[in-house]
Every structure is written in structure tokens, then in C-alpha cells.
Write a protein that binds this DNA or RNA. Structure first.
Lengths: 129, 129
DNA sequence: TATATTGTAATAGATAAATAGTACACTAGG
DNA sequence: CCTAGTGTACTATTTATCTATTACAATATA
């Protein structure tokens, strides 16, 4: 996997796993691949994977069972809250950045609409739910 | 100034100066504060400021005159292009992040609308152009 | 011609992050 | 009981970033 070398890799790994939980690629209670396997998949060191996972364990979205594996929380509501939290964080930083470039609220909204339209008419196989 | 310790400071400095150019706090052709002064303002080392500025000089948005100072490009169009570029980068990463969280195009648009509305009704002294 | 102010370069040290490698602890299954 | 597979811990090394410090080069001005 390719990472942005201006952002710590362990943070980018967290983001990937968050996304898999939110999209349901990883379901509540499901076991994650072994840390050594994750390290291979991500072409990254085991310690780096471990750092990402241990933070997520502290946050309560993962649980660890020594000798067995790492598991997504059973708490489906926790995952829902995670999605809300991640979406809100994106909205906040996006809004703040565009305001800092002097865009009005209206301009921000229409810029998103136009961007989405442009992407929609641009035959790159993405689907719209 | 406070920085996010997960992102290189020199990149965050570039972002701040970009914003000042785009918003007109720094006008085309205008002289920047001396690097040593900028370092004081930002509570950062001169070398770190220098790294940010030297990259922006390479990009052509700043020019340097040894013994005189650093200056914003005279090319107003260049600044306009900079704004376009920065806005587009924000849109792209924002869109990609929310798609990765399984939001549809419609949901992305309405989430922005609701976020802006919520902020608008929330008396925190921001103005709407 | 000096002196102050500007940008620029170079060195050395500190810290965070990532890597490689080794070892240990717990669990399941033959 | 032994072995394979799991998470976890620790050390050592490398790289990028930031800092502190010193020095030098170019410009303006008294």
C-alpha cells in the first residue's frame, strides 16, 4: 500500500481500518487479520501496525485477545458513533480550510455541488449507491 | 502560533502564507516580513521558515531578492490559479474521504448544507461575505 | 566607507517515526 | 505435552524534521 510520507503511517493505517469498519468490510465482532499478516498486506513493519491497533484498542473500537487475535468491537452503536465522528471531522476541517481561502458559505456549497457533478459526468467507474 | 505536531511545520507555514496571498492580506508584489521576523511571529526557527519560503520560491509564488527581502509574485493570475488549485485539492480529499465512509454524492452535499446551516445558527461571530 | 538589514548556507544536536530483529506470553489443537 | 499461531515487548538503527548557532553575501543608507 502507498502512504503519504508527510503523515505518520500509523495514523494512515488507523484511517484505513476505521473506513473498513464503517463500510462494513469489517463487521462488528469480526476478527482482524493477524498483525503479521496486516504488516505484509500494508507493506509495513509489525511495530507500526501494532502502534495503530493499540491506539484503537485504547479508544475502544477494537479489543485484543492475547493468543487469539484482534477483534472489532461488538458494540454496533460504537461503530455508528465512529462514522458520525469521522464525517464531522472531515466537514469541520474542509469548511475551515475553504473559509480560510475566503469562500462564502454559498460558494462552499456550490463548489461541492459542481465538483460532484463534474465527477458524475466523468466516466470513471464509481457508483452512486 | 500553534501547529499540528502530526504535520511538518514547514508545510503548515506554507499553507498560512498561501491563505494570506489568496485572501489578499498579502497582495501581489508585496514584501513579506523578514525571515527572522516571521520566525518570531510563528515562534519557530529561521531554518524552518526558510524551508517553507524556498519551496514557494521554487513554485514561483514568491520571489527572493538577496539583501532586500522576499516578495509575493507580481503575477495576479498566478495567485488566482493558486486559489483554484488549493480549493480543488480540498474538494478532492474531502470527497474521497466521505466516499470512503460510504456516503453517496447526495449525502455528501446535504451533509455540507446541514453543517453550514448548523454553523450559521450558532452565534460565533463569523460573517458571510 | 561603514553599518544595519536582508537572504542564504552549513554544521551539530534532539526528537519522532519507521524499520529490523529477537524474544516472550497466551491459546488452540494434534 | 508439544507445536503453531496469536498478541506483545524490547533494543538498535535509520531517516526526516526541527532547533540552535555561526557564518557569509547582497543591498540600502547614514
Amino acid at each position: 500500500m502507498q502512504f503519504d510520507d508527510k503523515v505518520p503511517i500509523y495514523l494512515q493505517i488507523k484511517r484505513v481500518i476505521y473506513q473498513e469498519m464503517v463500510t462494513g468490510q469489517l463487521k462488528a465482532g469480526e476478527q482482524l487479520p493477524a498483525v503479521r499478516q496486516l504488516a505484509l498486506n500494508l507493506t509495513v513493519n509489525v511495530n507500526t501496525v501494532q502502534r495503530a491497533l493499540s491506539e484503537m484498542i485504547t479508544e475502544g473500537v477494537l479489543t485484543s485477545k492475547r493468543g487469539k487475535g484482534n477483534f472489532v468491537t461488538e458494540d454496533q452503536q460504537r461503530i455508528g458513533a465512529l462514522k458520525t465522528q469521522l464525517v464531522r471531522a472531515q466537514l469541520s476541517s474542509f469548511y475551515q480550510a475553504l473559509r480560510a481561502l475566503n469562500l462564502s458559505d454559498e460558494e462552499i456549497i456550490t463548489s461541492v455541488q459542481h465538483y460532484v457533478q463534474r465527477r458524475g459526468s466523468q466516466d470513471d467507474g464509481h457508483v452512486n449507491d
